[in-house]
Design a protein around this nucleic acid. Structure first.
Lengths: 352, 352
DNA sequence: CTGAAAGCGCTAACAG
DNA sequence: CTGTTAGCGCTTTCAG
């Protein structure tokens, strides 16, 4: 690896001059010399050493992303959002993937091992002199872990810290629940069944809240008998839709697309035409929602937007640190989802 | 940020001693002193600066992953494989995502802009003193780009370089094509329809090759009228399966799950029971393959394995560089896929 | 306009 | 066992 020193020797100037020229500082050398230095640099295939550069400048222009598991479906999109924003701002990112899913087989109830893993990762990242950290969760939930001590700003994506002591960016589950429900009500549905996720899930709770609000606002009684709790898997959607359809609901809102596919299956089996005899909504905008005719209506979470927002917050905090103008961003920021109404939502049934 | 120097001052020893103690070098100081130094380090919340450390050691123990686009479905799994191997070997990774899909909307025919992007990324990574690079493609194809000049080893995952001048790890499309076909033949199918991807695709070519081989080995004529070329999308599977089913095939092999879902749709429409009246195979093991009853048989590519293998190769090359024992690994390495036979493949039809 | 000198935080000889 | 010394490759005053 060629260094600045060699270039200096070859061109008969000092390392300082080479550095200045290569960094485009105006008036660092005569026009001739500048050309020569650049030529030699290219000739030696000079690559600056950013370790040395950053060490000297005491600034890395880098933030860290910690992902709980990059293989979980929504994570890459969030990472992508962070990257796109950072790129625009001239910041680099370094990614630390905990691989929780792979490692613990989806059991990450903030175990001691998990904590140790995380602490080690944070130490490592801090050692690399990152200026901020974005923690990307697999699904929205409270993160128990609190860093041993954190010398840089942190923000949480798709999850939130205990007591909201650090800022977090989530999508607005409640609003999405409300919007879907309102849409169905506006189409004339008075009796809407729900297949939630597990009762302990933040998503379940928030979406159901939105559902209930919408009913209330339209003076429709909330019938908890029409609300079932699944486990996000297809089979649970299938199973639970049996009793649910028996109740005579005219629409079903499943809290994810995978369970919605199970509902679809059940409808097929019963000879119910989705989008005609029954309206169906899912959530997440996954591939499978397009796997049927008619396709399943769904809700697209603003994953990329969450990433961008997190990046924005963290970069602001970093900038503030130098300015001493601490913009106290904290608490949860909720971003709106987009409702994808597809054929499965059916026509309005009011005229019927 | 506390430094080694401060600790040295506070404990009245030299920085060298602090460094030695903190790195656990045996016999660096008296027992008392060791305790004291460690205590002070903790007290100051000392975090080593890896920039300085790596600069000094002239070794980073880090390799780079360049992904064409982390949001493309198979990429995260490959990255995960690389990470798991590197972790075991005490290597760190740094990820550079080109975001080709997002940026160019899936048109990445190795344009000049793409090349410039890549060159910039490589320069950046090299500046960070990575010791090797793994390039992860979105889909198997020849990568035209050749690095301006590369001072570290490189290996390609899920794609291969022009003229195979660098090693690459792919999965064995041909074998997978063969295996699926043989499985269907063994069940008694003599007339098997195929819905390929685009004619220009490496995957299409290789899988079809396997298909043809299997027919040949079982003395079955290859009827190119039963082979249609889709575009990987669901609609093409649906459209093409019309004429394909008209030919009276008893089995359909679609080259991905998404097109297979289109075929499924068509079967439903025609009242053909998948897994009974017709056998169906997809490829990729995507969510959607489980979205039907019976579920679609498919092929799972060894994504994580590809990642691990790439990591192994690159780490070997890095080790070799210091030993001067260049294990000339090059050419393509093919890893086997796993065939997931599900109900859609049907029973054997021989007895019928 | 140019360069000498100092030093970012750390490690690796080598002496004592 | 401990400390001194000499940098890793780069940037940045500051004096010429």
């Amino acid at each position: 690896m060629a260094t600045i020193k060699e270039i200096a020797k070859l061109t008969g100037v000092s390392t300082a001059t080479v550095s200045n020229v290569l960094n485009g500082k105006p008036g660092s050398a005569g026009e001739e010399k500048i050309k020569e230095i650049k030529a030699v640099a290219r000739w030696l295939n000079y690559t600056p050493n950013s370790l040395a550069k950053n060490l000297k400048k005491r600034k890395t222009n880098t933030i860290a992303i910690i992902t709980e598991d990059i293989t979980v479906f929504n994570t890459p999109e969030i990472v992508d959002g962070i990257e796109s924003f950072c790129e625009e701002q001239g910041y680099e990112i370094i990614l630390g993937n905990m691989r929780l899913f792979k490692r613990y087989n989806n059991d990450f109830t903030d175990t001691p091992r998990h904590q140790e893993l995380l602490n080690a990762l944070v130490r490592n990242l801090l050692a690399k002199q990152v200026e901020g950290i974005i923690y990307v969760g697999c699904h929205c939930r409270e993160i128990q872990w609190l860093p041993d001590d954190l010398s840089v700003p942190i923000v949480f994506a798709y999850c939130y810290p205990h007591d909201d002591i650090y800022p977090s960016v989530l999508f607005d589950d409640e609003k999405a629940g409300y919007d879907v429900t309102k849409l169905l009500i506006d189409k004339g549905h008075q009796s809407i069944g729900v297949i939630c996720g597990p009762i302990t899930s933040y998503h379940t709770h928030a979406r159901l809240q939105g559902f209930q609000q919408a009913l209330f606002d339209h003076h429709i009684l909330y019938n908890s008998r029409n609300v079932f709790y699944g486990d996000w898997e297809r089979l649970s959607g299938y199973r639970l839709s049996g009793p649910l359809l028996d109740t005579g609901v005219s629409a079903v809102f499943a809290f994810n697309d995978v369970m919605a596919s199970g509902v679809y299956e059940r409808c097929l089996e019963r000879g119910l035409v989705v989008g005609k005899d029954i309206a169906l909504f899912g959530f997440d905008n996954r591939d499978i929602s397009l796997g049927y005719t008619p396709p399943i209506s769904t809700v697209k979470p603003p994953l990329s937007g969450i990433g961008r927002k997190c990046a924005e917050i963290i970069l602001n905090k970093i900038a503030d640190q130098s300015d001493h103008t601490d913009t106290e961003t904290f608490g949860r920021i909720l971003l709106s989802c987009v409702v994808y109404e597809r054929k499965s939502a059916g026509e309005s049934i009011i005229q019927k």
